[in-house]
Simulated assay, not measured.
Amino acid sequence: MTGPDIGVLGAGAFGTGLAIALAQTGRRVTLWARDAAQVARMQAERENTARLPGAPFPDSLTVTAELAEAATAPILLLAVPTQQVRRLAEAHAAALAGRWLVACCKGVELDTGLLPTQVLQAVLPGARVAVLTGPSFAIDIARGKPTALTLATAHGGAELQEALATHNLRLYLAEDVIGAQLGGALKNVVAIAAGVVLGAGLGESARAALMTRGFAEIGRLAQARGGQRETLFGLSGFGDLVLTCTSEKSRNFRHGLTLGRGEVPDAAQTIEGVMTAHAIAAQEDADTMPVTCMVSALLKGAVSLDEAKDLLLSRPLRHERG
């Protein structure tokens, strides 16, 4: 039997959405989930009712609880949470070797401050890595809604771009892997803050100001870490920021909205922006990354919402480009 063209590791909403979209073109796609019971349900229902209900599986999509089955594909999309990337790579290093490894998660590793592709390269030196990122919701991708994403890699990538693009999933190739990942990671932090602002009733004008200043600090950090500011004006930066900060489909925005209303967020949800805020705040100062550091402090309970607002508003006046 011919093996899959593409393997998707991780059957959360985004991994499932990508697997469906790619399989709709007739590509042979294998979707891997760690939980055998979840796999059995998906096989029986031909749908991921737990993570992406209302999106049936195409005939060319198979699901498995055996990672080795999915890893026979030449292209592997890693759609597990950022904090699980290292563990996955270490546990399955032999199976992942020699494949294209495309990180489809957005975040920063808490203990090291490394980005997903940096984690992969640390565990698998010499691996061909890329990142797929940008403004997208899983259900839109699965239902064939027009979506544009950034595919960033330092290893050429034209053939990979061709292999992963579909009629409704338009991919723009880039070389700035660092900038693309920082845009995707930090927009989640700003989205939490934007949700807090609206949940607390501070208004749309406050959200617009927060998004703008948050975007400025994302650019500063990207440039300081070897990325390019220009990257942040594209899909992986500005585009993703706008979507995530303005829609309740965003888990990070909803998380902030709940906090701003004084309610308790759903602990079962993976909120990548939480760990990203803590990871960046541990390495950067509040003058360089005021929004990110304040979000981290707020999430830890180190400051109240009123204190966070007053501290941000009382910062010294400065030039807008500063």
Rank of each mutant, 00 (worst) to 15 (best):
T2K: 15
I6G: 01
G7Q: 06
L9I: 15
G10M: 13
A11E: 14
A13L: 05
G15E: 04
G15D: 07
T16W: 00
G17L: 05
L18A: 11
A23C: 07
R28H: 13
R28F: 03
L31M: 06
W32K: 04
R34S: 09
Q38G: 13
V39D: 08
A44R: 14
E45P: 01
T49S: 14
A50F: 07
P53D: 12
P58L: 06
D59N: 11
T62L: 08
T64H: 10
L67M: 11
A70N: 08
A73G: 12
L76F: 01
L77V: 15
L77C: 12
P81F: 05
T82H: 10
T82R: 07
Q84R: 12
R86F: 10
R86L: 10
R87D: 12
R87V: 01
L88V: 08
A94L: 00
R99H: 14
L101P: 06
V102W: 09
C104I: 03
C104R: 00
C105T: 15
K106S: 04
T112V: 07
Q118S: 00
Q121L: 14
L124V: 13
P125T: 12
R128W: 11
V131C: 12
I141H: 14
R143V: 02
G144V: 04
P146C: 11
G156I: 05
L164A: 07
T166H: 04
T166E: 02
Y172I: 00
Y172V: 02
G179Y: 07
A191V: 09
A194G: 15
L198R: 15
G201E: 04
G203A: 05
A206L: 03
A208R: 01
A208Q: 04
A208W: 02
G219T: 03
L221Q: 03
A222K: 07
G227N: 01
R229F: 11
E230F: 04
T231Y: 15
G234S: 12
L235C: 03
S236Y: 02
L243A: 11
T244R: 09
T246P: 04
S247W: 00
L257Y: 13
L257N: 10
G260P: 07
G260L: 01
V264A: 10
P265G: 08
D266G: 02
E272T: 05
T276Y: 06
I280G: 12
D285Y: 02
M289D: 09
V291M: 15
L299G: 08
L299W: 11
A302M: 02
D306L: 06
D306F: 00
A308L: 09
K309Q: 13
P316E: 10
L317D: 14
L317H: 11
